[in-house]
Design a protein around this nucleic acid. Structure first.
Ligand SMILES: [Mn+2]
Ligand SMILES: [Mn+2]
Ligand SMILES: [Mn+2]
Ligand SMILES: [Mn+2]
Lengths: 223, 223
DNA sequence: TATTTATTTTAGACTACTCTAAATTATGAA
DNA sequence: TTCATAATTTAGAGTAGTCTAAAATAAATA
């Protein structure tokens, strides 16, 4: 089997590869895992020997199909546990990540499937991130950044880019959480900040920084 | 903090000390943890330096108050997770131990307390073992071995001594699980086997070996 | 009590993961 | 294209946990 540590490397590589489908640098992994480049190089050789990654010296690394499968399994568990913690144990969405970092390594395929069923096969975690199914497939989503939204159009808040606790708390206070209806009522030219109308006529003002870190989807869209 | 491995040693020492309140031998720990005596000696020195155990060369080891507290915390988590797995995820009582062995090491005091509340503050795990509260206190129990039961007297099955999967499955098939009413209707002198009447007039016959591994309590007893 | 046997500890070594410092390779500015 | 700088790898070493074999101690037995 693969160790706790190996799993974390595979997950990190997956998440770094995700935006653009290209090889990931040693330094990028080191920064994400909070370790040193030399340590990463050692691990890449090990994962390469196990054929979980494709690694060429000085050329970066990418996941093999086997490595990708493991990474997706970890992410599936992470997000299911986060959903459990919020929906069943009443934690807030900004509190669950560290617990999920531990729970994602629990080994038991049967447990994952039963947990998934117990939770009602959720499609997204509390942060709006999609939960891969047992085959590693994601529900398709058509999201865009709030920053790119059009004035006067109705959207639904679907997730966040930044997962930092303070950011999530701030959104909580604004009442802007996954599922919230969002109507862009005004855009301030000067600083690109937005005036939004949420449900119950609640009006809020968000900075461009916030708008850059919120995902929305067309309200009329049927996922 | 203390590692996964250290936690397993502390738990093992606790469980070996439990029956009689006396020091535990190196070999006993080695056997329980599936390791070698030399390895145990190393770990005992380490735990002793951390003042989690009281250890004198060649004299065996016992838990310090701090070590005992950690051990009880692990046991609390183990049993709460087992309860969760059986009650919420519909696992059978013979399937949950290995998962709980992993889950018991998840670090988050808040998670434990929320899980406990979510489960309704259960007093016993699926095997009838008491779940210590957050202060390490057990609900008092007045159990005896089925073997020691008196003919014609009504009891309630409360737990097992042996936790082996095959034994638990066997009890399942007999319909003899924690909570079952048990009336001893006959004792066979020759082999000390017992004739029992469970609920719904179900009659079962159990060997002395089985009777030695089942815990019962006086039905009239109020815990 | 003396001797044999069992238990426990010590010595030395191995794997997994990590680090710092030095060497190597790639990159990009001149 | 050359040189300086940044990124990466290699070398060497440390910690946690594990092992086998040998030495020391305790317990059992004659
Ligand atoms: Mn998370
Ligand atoms: Mn998440
Ligand atoms: Mn168990
Ligand atoms: Mn149990």
């Amino acid at each position: 089997m693969h160790s706790f540590t190996e799993e974390n490397y595979l997950k990190a590589i997956y998440q770094l590869m995700e935006p653009q489908e290209e090889a990931v640098s040693t330094n990028a992994i080191a920064e994400r895992i909070n370790t040193k480049a030399a340590t990463v190089t050692d691990m890449l050789k090990k994962l390469s020997a196990k054929e979980l990654v494709i690694y060429t010296k000085y050329q970066g690394v990418s996941l093999s199909p086997a490595g990708r499968k493991i990474a997706l399994g970890i992410i599936r568990k992470h997000r299911l546990w986060e959903f459990f913690l919020v929906e069943k144990l009443d934690f807030r969405w900004d509190e669950v990540h560290d617990m999920a970092e531990q729970l994602e390594h629990i080994q038991s395929p049967e447990l994952v499937e039963r947990l998934d069923a117990f939770l009602g096969h959720p499609k997204r975690d509390p942060h709006g991130d999609p939960i891969p199914d047992s085959n590693g497939q994601f529900a398709s989503s058509h999201t865009l950044l709030l920053e790119k939204g059009i004035k006067g159009k109705k959207y639904t808040m679907t997730g966040v880019v930044d997962h930092d606790t303070r950011f999530l708390r701030h959104l909580d206070e604004l009442g802007l959480v996954p599922g919230s209806p969002v109507l862009i009522t005004g855009i301030t030219e000067y600083d690109q900040s937005l005036q939004l109308k949420l449900n119950k006529k609640r009006m809020v003002h968000v900075s461009n920084h916030v708008a850059k870190n919120i995902l929305i989807t067309d309200s009329s869209a049927h996922e």
